[in-house]
């Protein structure tokens, strides 16, 4: 079976990634300076600003997530901000809002929420062309997010 170029197998944690196993339950805040693979349950927040977060097939997150790249194979209830990209695989379930530069979603994935694409080039060009005194209107105000989706939704 061929694999797509650039795609990294994620069924198992990569050697260099920290891993939270499927029998682990965590409540709280995770800050990481390395890639992280979560195959257990987590309630709280995760921040890996310059790194990749992979939610494994057994992973269940009720958390807001901030990372460079996010790959979802399991279940997430919460908002995700991925500076580079988010990859939602076939059997994944994601309920929450997404803010990212690129998104890849496989057919069969369950996704409920909104998608904001961050256009970095456009922003830079707009900033260069816009006088400093004039407010920039390249993105919607945060207040446009539905209140129900600002918090991690309740589990069904």
């Amino acid at each position: 079976m061929s694999s797509l170029p650039g795609r990294i197998p994620v069924a198992e944690p990569r050697n260099e990634a920290a891993a939270i196993g499927k029998s682990v339950v965590i409540k709280g805040q995770i800050l990481s300076r390395e890639d992280l693979f979560v195959d257990g349950e987590l309630e709280g927040t995760i921040e890996l600003n310059e790194h990749r977060l992979t939610i494994g097939p057994n992973g269940k997150l009720q958390a807001n997530v901030k990372a460079r790249e996010v790959v979802v194979l399991g279940s997430v209830h919460g908002n995700i901000e991925a500076a580079d990209r988010i990859d939602i695989r076939k059997d994944a379930q994601l309920v929450g809002d997404i803010k990212t530069a690129r998104i890849v979603i496989e057919d069969g994935a369950y996704f409920k929420g909104s998608i904001d694409i961050i256009r970095t080039e456009g922003k830079a060009a707009a900033a260069a062309a816009t006088p400093v005194t004039r407010p920039q209107q390249t993105t919607l105000p945060a207040g446009n997010t539905p209140p129900a989706l600002n918090r991690p939704p309740e589990r069904h």
Partner: peptide
């Protein structure tokens, strides 16, 4: 800005 509901799947569940 796009919001997705997957309405029928939510109904089924």
């Amino acid at each position: 800005r796009l919001s997705t509901e997957d309405f029928l799947r939510s109904v089924d569940a």
